[in-house]
Design a protein around this nucleic acid. Structure first.
Lengths: 135, 135
DNA sequence: GTAACTGCAAAATATTTGCATCCTT
DNA sequence: AAGGATGCAAATATTTTGCAGTTAC
């Protein structure tokens, strides 16, 4: 699974990529750069983490989640994501209690009617509140 | 108008606040810290801009717009926004061409049905594509 | 062997904090 | 006059870049 993903995307298999991808596969929610750094400790250079995340985003292995603070959140894309063409049009949920960000794969972002002249290409939706675990 | 907003929020009227609020009132879209710094030049210290924006957010004069990069975008709240209780549940549009972020006041964020156990408090929706000016 | 990846150092950028001074009320 | 707001300096934090050494294929 892990190796498949890397190979399918023509990425050489390195310790850093394996470890970071594993973190995403084992996480139900989104991860920030800081989360990954915390969970990998001294294993890799901070720069490597930045570059690995960037590579994963470019290849469409992970996608970005919008936030209102100046942070960057990443979450795993599902199988049908490909480079440059993501199908991650699901709603993201941020829990105010535990602060986790969760991909609600089964909740599709609804279409909205835009004013005259606006052409939509991509939509993002973030709902915050209390998650199932914290309620 | 400008003074009313500051007074209504019990903020002392200073040059910085007047100027920055004026920028928002005259802007159809969202502004980043950098935009404001660029438009005010050497007028105020960078720190003052940070603190002013933070104050405006706390008072509910402006609100944050979610982004996928590590930037922070601010937009003016409409009249019925109050501290801690925003009514800014409208869709934001980011134009891929001119890169402007526009508040679509008239487009309300639709409700979505969440999985069992999730309690929604607040929703954000960002649509990107091509805006009316750039098409 | 070669291209790609990593670590290190350093630069560039962004944000926060403390404190003395100045301005608004 | 008093409290709040600002500017400055400096500390932190974050992200990017270049390059030399190492690793995957």
């Amino acid at each position: 699974m892990l190796l498949d993903i890397l190979k399918k995307n023509k990425l050489s298999v390195t310790d850093g990529r394996k470890k970071i991808l594993e973190l995403f596969l084992n996480s139900d929610g989104a991860l920030a750069h800081a989360d990954i750094e915390a969970k990998t400790g001294e294993m890799f250079d901070r720069v490597t983490v930045y570059r690995t995340l960037q590579t994963f985003v470019e290849k469409g292995i992970i996608h970005l989640i919008p936030t209102t603070d100046n942070s960057v959140l990443y979450a795993l894309c599902k199988d049908n994501c490909e480079a440059g063409h993501h199908h991650d049009n699901h709603v993201h949920f941020i829990c105010d209690e535990c602060n986790k960000t969760i991909c609600l794969e089964e909740v599709t972002i609804p279409q909205v009617k835009l004013p005259q002249g606006f052409v939509p290409k991509h939509s993002e939706m973030v709902v915050s509140g209390v998650c199932d675990d914290c309620k």
